[in-house]
Amino acid sequence: MSGPEPVAELRDVTRVYRMGSHEVRALDGLSFTFRKGEYWSIMGSSGSGKSTLLNLLGCIDRATSGSYKVRGQEVGGLDDDELSELRSREIGFVFQSYNLIPQLDVLENILVPLFYQDDPPADGEERARMLAERVGLGARLGHRPMELSGGQQQRVAIARALVNDPAIVLADEATGNLDSKTALEILALFDELHAEGKTILLVTHEAKIGERAERTLRLRDGRIDEVVENRAGLTAAGGGA
């Protein structure tokens, strides 16, 4: 495959869980490359391995065997500190239940990934303010998560996922807790971010949402089942931009 620079390369990745006496192969020899600026949805029934893939891509889990490179850097040999540093620099997480830290206000929540970097950028706070503005929460920087609606919290979480200018944004059922109207707003925001050139991976089990992405990677039993080009996603992206 040629095209833009690869940001996440999986080579023959296997992840085996030991459940008592028997083993479960959550991922089974999976190879795939995600490139800069792509907008993927990852779909599959429960047990297909999509959560495991997300955890591996997000560097909070390690492959049992195989190679995984983030922006060309091999992840396998990193120790816990190096892996954490990699997360704080290259990964943006958006969770289903927002997962903001309750005792921090909006601005502080957005800044958390930078807070843990070994050498944080000098303009971090400025960047966080801009991102808060970008997701439409510029006026609520001092609010605590409890004081925000679900949609607003997810916007904060998206700003947080972007503050470190990550290689990939991983969104795990990011609209799962939202009503359909708010969910559409969030999806529109993803479309905009895609149009701005961000690399986005959207894990979902809802076909309608999965179709919003440029392409869909469908998993089954820890292997790639099919890769689908979504015209609807392209149209939506065009409409949102």
């Binding site: 997000g58 909070i60 816990d80 500190d81 954490s84 540093e85 997360r87 704080s88 620099r89 990964i91 997480f93 969770f95 997962n99 830290i101 309750p102 958390v112 990934p113 843990y116 970097q117 947080r160 470190n164």
Partner: peptide, 16 residues
């Protein structure tokens, strides 16, 4: 526990 998980996912090292 959940907060710890979030912080770790966002890049917190063990020492943090």
């Amino acid at each position: 526990t959940r907060e710890i998980g979030i912080r770790r996912a966002l890049g917190a090292k063990k020492r943090h």
